[in-house]
Design a binder for these strands. Structure first.
Lengths: 226, 226
DNA sequence: ATAATACCGACAGACAGTCGGTCGGTAACA
DNA sequence: TGTTACCGACCGACTGTCTGTCGGTATTAT
């Protein structure tokens, strides 16, 4: 008893199912059989709509891309919001997209699968950086920031945050994480040529519990003075 | 007609073969059959020595790790070399290990496979950063650098370089690459609180052809002034 | 001779993708 | 109106590849 649906509708059904499964089991841990069973279709149907498993992943990432960049651009364009606040909101747009999808986005950042993870990173770095760099340019005009390389600064800031805070690239204890956050903000100020202490509001991006104290490296790397 | 060899010797044969194949075809594109055929052993032999294909990759990465970090530590410990030169040599140790392995190392950085690539990145960032941070601390004592976060600075510098210059994370034209290098050096100076222009020697890490001119963002992102 | 280690190759199961065939919906035609 | 042809969506058995397993064998050292 076959059921015929519009191609667009079926494609989205497949993507919705894949979305859920990739979050639960990761890309590698999800078989095409898992996906087609969840949708309730046959193998041939799946491959009628997508040419490969990786094609499904790419379509899913593209769906997120459109959503994320759309949200980020809206925020960035709202000149009534102060520059710093806009930066924060754009970055938040990466983490929260469409309200009820928060948990989904968080899981997709987990190293469920390196390939998928890499592709998402690529989308974020190449997509979000120009938007943020645009905002930095406004800050430069307002005298908030001083750098001849707004784009490259934001690229560095985003790429690093991605590697250290969102990846499992660097294993951090709670203390180490707090220290990293402080250093991150300090270094962001330096890179952007912003006044010391002027970007502390970025801290809210990392949730609470990171207090605020004088700059100091609490990594096992305070320079030895012996 | 079976041939018996010492476990250590056989393990290295397998790793040598895997090394070559992973470079040629990537991890995903290399099957265990490829490896065992190249060595001239049976399936069961391969799995006698390694518990999985990923175990082979991990052993190979660990082999490189030991080699790379060893070379880096030697350089870092040579206090007769100026601080800046030592930084350069340590970074070069990542790219050139054991002379004749240069090409191999370069290929292993290619995105032959995301998982392997991710694991190598992790090793580099977590392994090299403390070594470099140690050197930075010496520079701080000598008044060359001024930062309360030597470790985090180097982490950011390494992580970013990895993402942009070694990954295919960001697609760069030759011009864009040159611009990125300039920005990278400029930003490195800022992060480390180094005197402007004092780290231009880092440029040699990127090969020739990057000239030298005044700081300017040649990304399509010079801030619009209208 | 015995025990431990290294080695062998047939096999099983999982998986992504293929391919010949079917079916529902629609347009064209008599 | 009924029939036919066509198209796109769908079906499921099958294929080939791959990783890892396991019962068995050969070699070496004692």
């Amino acid at each position: 008893m076959r059921v015929v649906k519009e191609a667009e509708e079926r494609r989205n059904e497949i993507l919705d199912a894949a979305d859920e499964l990739f979050n639960q089991k990761g890309f590698d841990g999800t078989s095409t059989n898992d996906i087609l069973e969840k949708v309730g279709i046959a193998r041939g149907t799946l491959y009628y709509h997508f040419k490969s498993k990786e094609d499904i992943m790419d379509a899913l990432i593209e769906r997120y891309n459109v959503r994320i960049l759309g949200a980020a651009r809206e925020v960035a364009a709202d000149k009534s919001i102060p520059v710093t606040e806009r930066i924060i909101r754009v970055i938040m747009a990466i983490q929260i997209s469409g309200g009820s999808n928060k948990e989904i986005m968080e899981h997709i950042h987990k190293p469920s699968n390196a390939l998928m993870h890499q592709k998402i990173q690529k989308v974020i770095i190449n997509g979000i950086t120009p938007i943020l760099a645009g905002i930095i340019c406004e800050g430069i005009e307002q005298g908030l920031f001083h750098t001849p390389f707004p784009y490259e600064c934001m690229e560095m800031i985003i790429a690093y945050a991605n590697a250290v805070f969102d990846d499992d690239m660097v294993d951090l204890t709670t203390e180490e994480r707090a220290s990293r956050i402080q250093a991150y903000i300090f270094n962001t100020e330096r890179l952007l040529g912003a006044e010391s202490g002027s970007l502390m509001s970025i801290m809210q991006l990392f949730g609470s519990g990171t207090g605020s104290s004088s700059p100091e490296s609490s990594h096992d790397f305070a320079c030895k003075t012996d």
